[in-house]
Design a protein around this nucleic acid. Structure first.
Ligand SMILES: [Mn+2]
Ligand SMILES: [Mn+2]
Ligand SMILES: [Mn+2]
Ligand SMILES: [Mn+2]
Lengths: 220, 220
DNA sequence: ATAAAATATTAGCTTTGCCTAAATTTTAAT
DNA sequence: ATTAAAATTTAGGCAAAGCTAATATTTTAT
């Protein structure tokens, strides 16, 4: 059996991938330990195992980086994680904030056919319920990942491209504010203490909470 | 964490449950070893662990039997296994002969909500794609396991008790043939080359493919 | 009733993963 | 440039699960 990784190995690869995404360069032992809720000593050990399997490049005391193979493997796990999250939210009435733990388990199920069929069944979604891009079967990520409204800075404009919270209450609220798909918005002001935003929508100014802006996707 | 069993423990409980179903009484170490594709020594060890946790009654050299708690736990695993099999076949285009391996993994996913929602999503099926009964949430098994029409021999009669394929196309087809719940049928002839059946329904003779007869449950 | 064959258990080892404590290396501060 | 602090690795253990080889017990055949 060649392409066989343990659940733990897959979790490490995914964690390294995520940390690499944002921080770039070498991922530190302590960052991994924190993210994986384990101890530094355990991380060092696993890192050595992954390095032996050529999944990561490891320079003692200076952190790890995924190899090509490691990245590829990490991407298949990310793909499964996000597809399952989509399934849970769109078909099984899960709320977007209660899917993570289950997806954390489901992402380790081994079956190429299952992944492919799940993808088809869901209509080949490009983004998961949190707005994160879903890698395709070959590991390609949609290049321009959606942004959340909450990620825009004061003065920036964006066009609404989707919502995360599909609850009817939220959608109704948006409708009341004249916010819908393709609505153009401009960030007028951000309150620092609670990150709420005043947003220009057409000729109206609307105040949106962080919770709300987290759930609105925009394109600039 | 109380109700936490490892994947291996769950596999053992399920195996003991199955062997108990057919053979009754004490389940032997060797039978378990064979079913689980492991060695007798390993089985003995695990059995002792399960006995410590009061999941089985174990008398050295005389095999094991599930306790009430053990049986309950085994049933939740069986329930998940069969629900997932149903999902794979009915929604993900899996063939009924290629679901077992994947279900073997999926059955260990821990999430009560997931199980409940999956059950609802599938329309609370009573039988899995192999015609095996799916325990309900409290662990009750439908007492008289249904038979598939395809399992009847020439000359035998049966009363339709349910369908496996819930697709509207299939149900419409059945409706056209005047086949519905509680319809009485008699197997007139079975074609050996494709296992299709000529069935007497009321005063009409109907030809049903193997695929169709696999998806019709009967009681004789 | 005894011996042989079949089953089951125990003993001793291995791997994976994780932990704490001790030692080492790097980084930050004086 | 030293030294103190922070981060990392190493050493030594532990639990889960598996395996093989050696024993022990039960069953079957003579
Ligand atoms: Mn995971
Ligand atoms: Mn997500
Ligand atoms: Mn299993
Ligand atoms: Mn089945």
């Amino acid at each position: 059996m060649k392409n066989m990784f343990t659940q733990s190995e897959e979790n490490y690869l995914k964690a390294i991938f995520h940390l690499q995404e944002e921080a770039g360069e070498g991922v530190s032992t302590s960052a991994l330990a924190e993210l994986l809720e384990t101890k530094a000593a355990s991380v060092t050990e696993m890192i050595k195992r992954l390095a032996n399997k050529n999944l990561v490049d490891y320079k003692k005391y200076y952190g790890v980086q995924l190899t090509q193979t490691g990245r590829k493997q990490a991407l298949t796990v990310v793909r499964k994680h996000r597809l399952w999250e989509s399934f849970l939210v769109e078909r099984l009435n899960f709320n977007w904030d209660e899917v993570h733990e289950v997806a954390e388990q489901l992402e380790h199920i081994r079956s190429p056919k299952l992944v492919e069929e799940l993808d088809r069944f869901l209509g080949r979604p490009a983004y998961d319920p949190h707005g994160d891009p879903i890698p395709d079967a070959s590991g390609n990520l949609p290049k321009a990942p959606k942004k959340r409204l909450s990620q825009l800075k004061e003065g920036q404009k964006g066009v609404c491209k989707g919502f995360n919270d599909a609850s009817s209450a939220f959608l109704k609220f948006l409708d009341d504010q004249d916010i819908g798909m393709h609505t153009e918005m401009k960030v007028m002001q951000i309150q620092s203490f609670d990150e709420s935003m005043t947003v220009q929508v057409g000729k109206r100014q609307v105040l949106l909470s962080k919770t709300a802006t987290d759930n609105i996707y925009v394109e600039d």
